[in-house]
């Protein structure tokens, strides 16, 4: 009975239209569509479709980012309702995400952050040029399931190892998983420093994070 509304929600994500997705979220509340249904059956299918389109090469980074923005706008409207009804949207997991010490590049990190948040993770973005200890402290503070480390340069990539060590030292591992990414990062590097995985791009980062939390 809400089929038209759900289809419009999906469309608003595909169009990357935050104004529209927020308006549709409000409409859902007015019409008594359970907020969780709006997320699961309205907005998320749109996000999945964008992710698939991107992986196939039919869609591009701006599509991905705008879809993420539209998703955020919709969940911002629905979140208070979810809390009211007590049916909190089930988060997939908590992630602390940042660019490592000495590296101020944030495009890749922010993309991953947007996509993870849109997919249903609780993302704590700690920014750029972040010391290893900060990652560890924040992970403990929020009860993180995953710490995500970005680095664009071969010279700063080594700081990813420092974070792994800091987490080890604080006894947070293996409960807290570490995922790494960035231009110079390879699977071999991830293995070498004892990380739990790497993703080729923002879409791969989401599937990697999902698999690490068993979703």
């Amino acid at each position: 009975m809400h089929d038209g509304l759900l289809a419009a929600m999906r469309r608003s994500i595909l169009d990357g239209d935050p104004d529209r997705s927020a308006a549709l979220a409000r409409e859902a509340i007015e019409r008594g569509l359970p907020p969780l249904d709006a997320v699961r059956h309205g907005f998320v299918p749109g996000l999945d479709e964008v992710g698939e389109g991107f992986a196939k090469g039919d869609l591009f980074l701006p599509d991905l980012v705008m879809a993420g923005e539209a998703m955020k706008a919709a969940t911002a409207v629905l979140e208070p309702e979810l809390q009211k009804t007590g049916a909190r949207r089930e988060i997939l997991g908590r992630i602390v995400l940042g660019t490592v010490r000495g590296d101020i590049h944030e495009i890749g990190k922010t993309l991953v952050s947007t996509m993870l948040a849109a997919a249903g993770f609780e993302v704590h973005d700690v920014g750029v040029d972040v010391p290893a200890e900060t990652f560890a402290d924040r992970a403990r503070e929020v009860g993180a399931d995953i710490v995500g480390l970005s680095a664009l340069l071969t010279t700063t990539m080594t700081a990813q190892r420092d974070v792994v060590r800091a987490l080890d030292r604080d006894g947070l591992r293996p409960r807290v998983k570490v995922i790494v990414g960035g231009a110079p990062v390879t699977r071999a590097w991830a293995e070498e420093i004892g990380a739990d995985g790497y993703g080729e791009d923002a879409v791969a980062a989401v599937s990697l994070a999902r698999s690490l939390v068993g979703r």
Binding site: G16, F60, L61, P62, D63, V65, M66, E69, I107, T110, L111
Partner: peptide, 13 residues
Amino acid sequence: GEFLKLPETRRLF
């Protein structure tokens, strides 16, 4: 300057 988030980027690129 997060231009990836601008609707103009999506349209113009």
